[in-house]
């Protein structure tokens, strides 16, 4: 079953909310709201700070916002014997090299380029579609049968236009052939006449020259007629090949038919005719990969609220 645009947008909104980094005390509110007997009495800001401290003390809860900084690197270097960083002068850079040379495993080489971490997936609709999180919206442009139907219709129209062009060339070639035939007849009569004259007056070179020229023209006409005939044959071949347009269209229609039947089948198999109202589903169930609270964490949270 395809999703409607509204369903996709609703899905997007839910996910967008989940993706946001929510304050820890909001999560606590949600968790506590699900536990019987706990009443939300709107804890004061002091209590919220305590909760944050407590959460910081619980193993496994890591604040993702914290990133290693250059200060951490300074701390590490400070832990190595002999390295004193008072940040006073550049001369100490040379000393630093000496010291580093004395540390096992440190070799004199170009500093390694920092490996860039993959940027976290963006939150735009296009990105999520590219990542396969969301399907393409079921607009007309993305409905498979619609698109296939459009391809079939468009190609039919274009094939007809191509046929118009080929027919035009055939018609024009017919005119060329007609003109060639007319010219050929005249040239043949001229050749006949000039042949007789050249035979009767062999001393007149002009007659012989014209006869030769007329014969050349006759050959040219014949050759041109052959070229046009060959061209016509190629156009007929092209027209025959255009049958594949019809064959391919029928293949597309067969695919469309399969998709339509599959849609009907899937609609039938997923159809719920029980007429029961939609049940409310759990958001986070034990065993889920994220957003579930362990027993210890739960006890701590309950204790934090003095319950």
């Amino acid at each position: 079953m395809s999703m409607t645009q509204e369903e996709i947008e609703a899905l997007m909104n839910d996910t967008a909310i989940e993706d946001k980094v929510e304050p820890a005390d909001d999560n606590i509110d949600d968790i506590l709201a699900g536990i019987d007997g706990i009443v939300d009495d709107e804890p004061s800001s002091d209590e919220e700070i305590n909760i944050d401290d407590m959460l910081a003390g619980i193993d496994g809860i890591v604040e993702s916002e914290e990133e290693s900084t250059s200060d951490d690197m300074d701390d590490i270097l400070a832990g190595i014997d002999g390295i004193v960083d008072d940040g006073s002068s550049e001369d100490q850079v040379d000393d630093m090299d000496d010291i580093l040379a004395g540390i096992d495993g440190v070799t004199d080489s170009e500093p390694k380029k920092e490996i860039k971490k993959e940027s976290p997936p963006a939150d735009t609709l296009e990105d999520k579609i590219d990542q396969g999180i969301f399907p393409l919206p079921s607009s007309n442009e993305h409905k498979i049968v619609n698109q296939l139907n459009q391809v079939a219709e468009d190609s039919e129209e274009k094939a007809s236009q191509i046929f118009d062009v080929l027919s035009f060339i055939l018609d024009e070639n017919e005119k060329v052939e007609s003109a060639l035939n007319k010219n050929s007849k005249f040239i043949e009569s001229q050749v006949e006449l000039l042949t007789k004259l050249a035979t009767k007056f062999p001393n007149i070179q002009l007659l012989q020259d014209n006869l030769n020229e007329a014969n050349e023209l006759k050959n040219t006409c014949s050759n041109t007629r052959n070229v046009v005939a060959e061209e016509n044959n190629k156009i007929f071949e092209a027209m025959e090949i255009m049958q594949y347009h019809d064959i391919n269209r029928q293949k597309i229609e067969r695919v469309m038919s399969v998709i339509k039947k599959l849609t009907t089948y899937l609609n039938g198999i997923f159809e719920d005719d029980s007429k029961k109202p939609e049940v409310q589903i759990a958001k986070h169930i034990s065993g889920d990969s994220h957003n579930t609270v362990e027993n210890e964490d739960l006890d701590d949270l309950i204790a934090e609220f003095g319950k």
């Binding site: 039919e156 007809s160 027919s167 007929f236 027209m239 347009h245 269209r249």
Partner: peptide
């Protein structure tokens, strides 16, 4: 008789040659 106008024209063309 053919639902493809292209096919009708192709057949018509051959028939024309006859």
């Amino acid at each position: 008789v053919d639902d493809s106008s292209t096919m009708r024209r192709i057949i018509g063309n051959v028939v024309g040659q006859l």
